[in-house]
């Protein structure tokens, strides 16, 4: 997988297929991005599990915190890592001990670890780096368009008015990754990948 520019169908396939998401580094502080990404994904119908050893015994929006991935005690489809790039590898290594393995490992906006990604991909896990699932869901459904963001999708179909808790269709026609190629190139230069 080219981690500089993901085809929309790759992201769409992931967001359409996973049901449960364990969020590593989920924060109960309601101005942190992890908090509102957690909340949004829960509102869009995903089965969310907050993972943060500092908050065991507490709940995030009604879901009990667990200390680590191995404490979840049931299969999870996707692990969303809200940690800096330097803390990715141990989380991925722990994820690789789970049985069954997760289908997807997702690293948040700003987080990227190519070695960890290669490790996960070598056992058939799909990897997304330096993206936010809330932004991608909002983009592919065009819900994000309210703030002038280029969703890079088109549709001539009438969509239902979104309400809380509703899953939205992500199956719009893609304009492809090409139109933000400039920003993808910039991300590539920043991380020194070639």
């Amino acid at each position: 997988m080219n981690h500089d520019a993901y085809p929309d169908n790759y992201i769409r396939g992931i967001l359409n297929s996973v049901k449960s998401i364990a969020m590593v580094g989920a924060s109960p502080v309601n101005v942190r991005p992890s908090y509102f990404a957690f909340k949004y994904l829960a509102q869009r119908g995903y089965d969310m599990i907050p993972v943060n050893p500092g908050h065991v015994g507490k709940e995030l929006l009604g879901k009990p915190f667990v200390a680590s991935l191995s404490d979840i005690g049931r299969p999870v489809d996707m692990i969303d890592i809200f940690r800096n790039s330097s803390h990715i590898m141990p989380v991925v290594e722990e994820a690789l001990t789970l049985d069954p393995l997760p289908k997807v490992i997702w690293m948040q906006l700003g987080a990227r670890d190519d070695a960890a990604a290669a490790k996960a991909e070598s056992v058939g896990i799909k990897v997304v780096m330096n993206r936010c699932p809330k932004i991608e869901y909002g983009r592919l459904s065009s819900e994000i368009s309210w703030m002038g963001v280029n969703s890079r999708t088109l549709s001539s179909k009438r969509a239902p008015a979104p309400t809380q808790g509703m899953r939205l269709s992500l199956n719009r026609m893609s304009v492809g990754g090409g139109d933000t190629a400039a920003s993808d190139r910039a991300a590539k230069n920043k991380t020194g990948q070639s």
Binding site: M147, N150, D179, T180, A181
Partner: peptide, 15 residues
Amino acid sequence: AVLEERVAALEGGTA
């Protein structure tokens, strides 16, 4: 917002 997304798309910007 429609105008914003349209011009962003025509210019190849993110928003």
